[in-house]
Structure formats: structure tokens, C-alpha cells
Computed example of a mutant assay.
Amino acid sequence: MDTADLLERSYPGRRAELKRDIFHKALSLFNEQGIEATTIEMIRAECDTSVGAIYHHFGNKEGLVAALFFTALEDQARLRDAYLDAADTTQKGVQALVFSYVDWVEQQPQWARFQYHARFAVTKGPFKDELAERNKTRNLRLRQWLTQSGRAAELQDLPAELLPSLIIGQADSYCRAWLAGRVKGSPSAYREVLAQAAWRSIRAEGLAEN
């Protein structure tokens, strides 16, 4: 799936055409050259626009990196919520979380690769507070789903902050290895195995798998 598909979803219409072009070219440069080595001038040259236009939209390079990172997170969350809405049991909900994560990475490898590389910079940079707020809002849907009536009895008594790592951690590790070329099998080939492992890690003792 082309990176343009994600940008069209996130920033539709003719008025956002320049913004989409800047995003598209910046994403390629950040992945090819590295975030530190890529300059605004390099992005400007690729987009055939002015430095002022880039600063107008994003403020500076840190703002552009953060905007790309937030765009990826929001698109990932859209797919997650669509999968979660179709889940009618707790186990299927855990499966939906793993499936949506794996499928998004495989559909959007360039965005996923950037997301992994940019996470530290955004977490430690000037947009860390905005990231924390966005994560809080993004995860509200997940917390609401997990705390619905009857679901707590199906899960181990674990800290809420630990659940995302237990559910997504193994899928995240495999996806990183796949993006880095360390493994050959596509993430989707192992989505069932990864989902089963996630469910076993959080289900209450004595609760059978469906």
C-alpha cells in the first residue's frame, strides 16, 4: 500500500496537497538518510517549494517529525478501533489488537519504519507533552473496551499500564525484526500465533481458549 493512501485519508482535498507532498518527501528522506542527517533544505529541494512554506506548516524540523509521527499513530488507531468494534468477546478483542497492529505495519512499512526511528526523538523532544496527551486520548477507547462489564473477570489482575506491552509486545518485536530485514516471514503469516500468545499472557488462570 502506498504512503499516499494514508496521507489522503489523513489530509484529504486539494487544499492539503502541498502538505501531503511535504509529508511524502520528508518521510522518504527520513527513512533513507536518517532523521538527524535530513535537513529542511533537503526536503525543500525534493518538494520544489520554499523553506518558508515548510516552516509555515510545521514550525521547524522537530515539528515536521512530530506531525509525521502523530499522523502515523492516528492512522494506526483508526484501524485498531475498526477491528475492535467487530470483536464480540474479550479474546477476540485481544486478537483484534494484535491483528490490527500487524496488518497496519505490513500495509504501511514506510510509516512503521519511520515510527520506530522517530519514537525516541518525539518522546524526548519539545512535543513530548503533546504526545502524552494524544496517547491518553488514543488509549481511552482501549481502556473503555477492556473495562466493560464482565471482561475484568476474564483477565489476570494486572496493572492497566502493563496490558498494552503484554498484548502487543511480541508482535511489536517481530514487526521490528521484519522491517529491519532480520526475518523473512511476513508479520501477517504469524498473526494467529502472536494473537494466541497475547491472549495466554493476560487471560485469567483456568480460562480456556475459544
Rank of each mutant, 00 (worst) to 15 (best):
G13H: 12
A153N: 10
A153W: 05
D103G: 03
L6T: 07
E106C: 06
D75G: 10
C175A: 08
R44G: 04
E36G: 10
K136C: 13
R134N: 10
A121S: 15
D5T: 15
K136W: 14
Q170S: 14
R138V: 05
Q95T: 02
W199F: 15
Y116Q: 10
F70Y: 10
S10N: 09
Y55S: 04
S173F: 07
W145I: 00
R176T: 01
G185Y: 03
G63Y: 04
G93W: 03
A180C: 14
A26L: 15
S149Q: 12
N135I: 10
R151F: 07
T49G: 05
L84V: 03
A45W: 02
L166Y: 00
R9K: 09
V105H: 14
K136P: 08
L64W: 02
L97A: 06
A204F: 01
Q115L: 08
S173V: 11
F127H: 11
F70S: 08
A96S: 03
A67R: 13
E41C: 01
E62C: 09
P159G: 04
R141C: 08
A208H: 11
E154G: 00
I22N: 04
F69T: 07
A177E: 14
Q95D: 05
V98H: 04
I168G: 00
L146C: 01
N210S: 10
L7Q: 07
A53Y: 03
R191A: 03
R9P: 08
A67V: 07
E130K: 11
V94M: 04
A189F: 01
R119T: 07
I43D: 04
D88F: 13
Y83P: 00
D75W: 05
A87S: 14
K92Q: 13
R14E: 15
N60V: 06
D75V: 03
I54D: 00
C47F: 06
D21N: 11
A195N: 01
L140T: 06
R203A: 11
C175Q: 08
K61H: 11
E154L: 02
A96D: 00
A66R: 02
A72Y: 07
A180R: 15
Q107D: 12
Q115V: 02
K61T: 08
A121H: 15
A16S: 15
S186N: 03
Q108S: 12
G169A: 07
D85M: 01
T137N: 02
R14K: 14
F30S: 08
L97R: 06
D2I: 06
A160S: 09
R9S: 11
L158I: 12
G93I: 03
D81L: 04
Q95F: 06
V65C: 08
L6W: 02
Q196D: 14
L179M: 07
A152M: 12
L131K: 08
A72W: 06
I167D: 00
E41L: 11
F99P: 00
A132G: 05
Q115T: 14
F120N: 08
R15P: 05
V105F: 15
